[in-house]
């Protein structure tokens, strides 16, 4: 059986909120290392990969592999019933029909309990090889969100060009063009504002802004976001969570004209 207790319901609320517009029905794969999810959007252009390590829960117990097929709209409805600071416990039997969610207030004696019916989801699973990326950019997640939103007002796509000079986000559309260039930057007092660019070779790729803006819904999960690029492979956008847990998005580049 599965029993996984999160100190704050907020974490799962934010994760589900960040991915629910991209993917609808997904398997939450539970085993002794934690709870993982991998799902592609309908157009197979973007992929979500979530890992909540067992260390992110206290306690965490999962005796055997269990796949919880959950509709994210249903999960969102139930998670709305939890206060952000509630303690959340996920429970399921070994061959479950439902997943049980318990919300406990740390400050009062309220205990809420919900069951969500599970679905049988036959999901395509992609193998993503370990990649040595040509460019890795760490930057404030709010900054990345602002750049994507700003450029989307002008164009449907953005080119991300990384050289030793810095990283340039550029777009052009019907009304004109725009670009934002960032250079490496270290703020000793506020390291969350750092921009770090690790480059082994120059990279230039073009991506759909619609998807990037969607990924940025995860900005509330982490102060920093990591962008990993190599020519001719999908972009990795990573939001690191505590205990080595993460929320990753992969986006295929746009090709041709």
């Amino acid at each position: 059986m599965l029993e996984a207790r999160l100190e704050q319901a907020n974490l799962l609320k934010k994760v589900v909120d960040a991915i629910k517009d991209l993917v609808q029905d997904c398997n939450f794969d539970c085993n002794d290392s934690g709870i993982a999810l991998q799902a592609m959007d309908n157009s197979h252009v973007a992929l979500v990969s979530m890992m909540l390590k067992s260390e992110s829960f206290s306690p965490f117990r999962c005796d055997r592999n269990i796949a919880l097929g959950i509709n994210l709209t249903s999960l969102t409805k139930v998670l709305r019933c939890a206060a952000n600071e509630d303690i959340l416990t996920l429970k399921a039997e070994d061959a479950p029909d439902v997943v049980n969610l318990v919300f406990e207030s740390a400050e009062s004696d309220r205990l809420s309990e919900y069951d969500i019916k599970l679905m049988d989801i036959d999901q395509e699973h992609l193998g993503i090889p370990e990649t040595e990326y040509a460019a890795t950019i760490s930057m404030p997640s709010a900054e990345f969100q602002k750049i994507c939103r700003d450029l989307m007002a002008l164009s449907e796509s953005v080119s991300i060009e990384c050289t030793k000079e810095g990283v340039k986000f550029a777009c052009s559309g019907d009304i004109g063009s725009g670009s934002v260039t960032l250079r490496s930057h270290t703020n000793v007092e506020k390291p969350q504002l750092n921009v770090e660019i690790d480059l082994s070779e120059p990279v230039a790729l073009t991506f759909s802004l619609k998807y990037l803006v969607n990924f940025c819904k995860a900005s509330g999960l982490s102060e920093q976001v990591r962008l990993c690029l190599s020519n001719e492979v999908p972009l990795l956008v990573e939001y690191a969570l505590s205990n080595n847990s993460y929320l990753r998005f992969y986006l295929a580049p746009k090709i041709g004209d």
């Binding site: 157009s43 992609l126 993503i128 090889p129 449907e156 796509s157 999908p234 295929a252 004209d257």
Partner: peptide
């Protein structure tokens, strides 16, 4: 507009 590629062209199904 540029053609939007597909993840399946980079990663294989497992």
């Amino acid at each position: 507009t540029p053609f939007q590629n597909n993840l399946g062209e980079y990663y294989t199904l497992v």
